[in-house]
Computed example of a mutant assay.
Amino acid sequence: MISKPGHDPEVSLLAVTVDLVIFTVRGDELHILVVERGIEPFQGAMALPGGYVRPGETLDEAAERELREETSLEGSALHLEQLRAYSEPERDPRGRVITVAYLALGPDMPPPVAGTDAREAVWVPVASVLGGGTELAFDHATILRDALEHARSQLEHTTVAAKFCPEPFTVGELRRIYEVVWGFKLDPSNFRRKMTRAEAFLEPTGEQRFPDVGRPAALYRRGSARFLVPPLLRTAASRDDAHVHPG
């Protein structure tokens, strides 16, 4: 969407876009959705999905539309929140473009569908992108790093981790989400105690899952709480793990 500057010569034409950082866990790895750009600038490069805000759209509506176009999922099926705005004057070679980044989290999602300006849409491991195996166009690597840190912090203080889990799920499956996003192992007993005692986080279904090996595991669904009370801080969780598993 282009906003006209009026009669002030010091005000330049301004474009507003939304970019989506869409996280999911696939094969015990945190993945992000990226697209291959089909047009200039950065034609052929990988980038976060996104696009211009259309006339008559709010930012949230634009983000939900882009999410629907790229994943075939409605925003209501995922955790979708505004991350922050990025406004560096030279961030886009097309001109003055401010983007508002959104963070989306959800369980293992279907194969993505490329939007109108993309040749291909694929899930790639976040570690591959941050490790330099997949370079992102524009300032999208910065947006990704910010989104990852925000997601990690959200797991400490909110119940958003359960959004990664298809219902019903076990405490072990929830613990694996924390381990994948945070990047270190957690002690199963400590984690179970903290999660099952957290206020309105987990709601027992009264059913169990029977694995091929081991004991049956109780099944849960997401509770009504939005915030994790008490919080599960990364510093404390890593100390617990180091105490139980020295070296």
Score class of each variant (00 low, 15 high):
D108W: 03
R91A: 09
L228K: 11
T99D: 10
I22R: 02
P93W: 10
G75H: 07
W182E: 10
V122R: 15
Q82N: 09
A236R: 13
F227S: 14
I2K: 13
H79W: 15
F201L: 15
A237Q: 05
E57W: 12
V100F: 11
E90K: 05
G131F: 00
A45W: 08
R239I: 10
I143W: 00
G6S: 00
H243Y: 12
A161N: 01
L33H: 03
P230A: 03
I177F: 02
G183E: 06
K185Q: 15
D19M: 12
S87H: 09
E149Q: 10
A15M: 15
E88M: 02
D187H: 10
V35G: 00
F210Y: 14
S76A: 15
R192K: 13
A141S: 04
W182G: 05
Q208T: 15
L83R: 06
L136V: 00
H79E: 12
K4L: 15
P125R: 01
E81C: 13
G247Y: 12
F42I: 01
L144P: 00
D139V: 03
S87K: 03
V11E: 11
H140E: 01
G50M: 13
T205H: 03
W123V: 10
T99G: 06
G206P: 08
D8P: 07
A62H: 08
